[in-house]
Amino acid sequence: MAERVLVCVPANAEQARQIAGGRTIEGPLQAFTASPALYETFGLQPSDDEQAEYAAMLLAGLWALIHHGERLVLTAMVDSRTLCPGGEAANGGASLSELEASSVEAWFSDDDGAALDAVRAAVAGLSLDDAWEDPRVQTLHAEHDLAWHSVTELSKEA
């Protein structure tokens, strides 16, 4: 039996609508996971699972902001065979062949109070590593956690 892996998938509004409608998003899709490389990049110990998963979620949110203009992350338990090497490997990045709606467990987004305009403008066109180092991104991460939502709420938002 294949191993199940938690992935954080940066998404756009259309992809969220597909999942809310019970449809599969065809890949390849950028995904982030608590990989050994992510542990090494962030100087985490093997027992730091929660911190590694949180880092993967923040990275996915930042990737979504850079590429989609908003922080929207779908979290899912996927078959490890659907993952292969991809972009952002040092940051836990992988390529996901598809994302089935039934695999999505929750989603994360900014609350209405997060002022993203300045950060969005600052990270436009940057690499993930360069954007991560931007002081406005660090402030965003410190002051505006992504809000957790049940997967059942996705259809109400999408």
Rank of each mutant, 00 (worst) to 15 (best):
E3W: 01
R4A: 11
R4M: 10
C8G: 03
C8M: 13
V9E: 13
V9G: 10
P10R: 07
P10C: 12
A13Y: 13
E14L: 14
E14C: 09
Q15V: 06
Q15N: 05
Q15Y: 05
R17C: 15
Q18A: 13
I19D: 05
I19F: 05
I19H: 01
A20R: 01
G21V: 04
G22T: 03
G22W: 10
G22M: 04
R23A: 13
R23Q: 15
T24N: 04
T24P: 01
I25D: 01
G27P: 03
P28A: 10
P28V: 12
Q30R: 14
Q30V: 14
Q30L: 15
A31F: 08
F32A: 09
T33F: 09
T33M: 13
A34L: 00
S35F: 05
S35W: 05
P36N: 07
L38M: 07
L38T: 11
Y39A: 08
Y39F: 15
L44S: 01
Q45Y: 11
Q45I: 03
P46V: 00
S47V: 01
D48V: 01
E50Y: 13
E50D: 10
A52W: 00
A52D: 04
E53S: 06
Y54S: 12
Y54A: 12
Y54I: 05
Y54C: 02
A56F: 03
A56V: 05
L58W: 08
L59P: 00
L59A: 09
A60I: 06
G61Q: 06
G61W: 02
G61S: 09
L62F: 06
W63S: 13
A64D: 09
A64I: 08
L65C: 10
L65R: 08
L65N: 09
I66A: 06
I66D: 03
I66E: 08
I66N: 09
H67K: 12
H67T: 14
H68F: 15
H68S: 14
H68I: 00
H68C: 12
H68P: 03
H68V: 04
G69F: 07
E70G: 02
R71H: 06
V73N: 02
V73P: 00
V73H: 01
L74H: 03
L74C: 04
L74S: 01
T75I: 04
M77L: 15
V78F: 04
V78G: 07
V78S: 03
R81N: 10
L83I: 07
L83S: 02
C84V: 06
C84I: 10
P85N: 08
P85L: 10
G86N: 10
G86S: 10
G86H: 09
E88M: 13
A89F: 08
A90G: 09
A90F: 12
N91T: 11
G92K: 06
G93M: 14
A94R: 14
L96Q: 05
S97M: 11
L99C: 13
L99T: 10
E100K: 15
A101Y: 03
A101D: 07
S102Y: 06
S103M: 12
S103A: 15
V104A: 07
V104F: 08
V104C: 10
E105S: 12
A106V: 00
W107Y: 15
S109Q: 05
D110N: 13
D111T: 12
G113W: 09
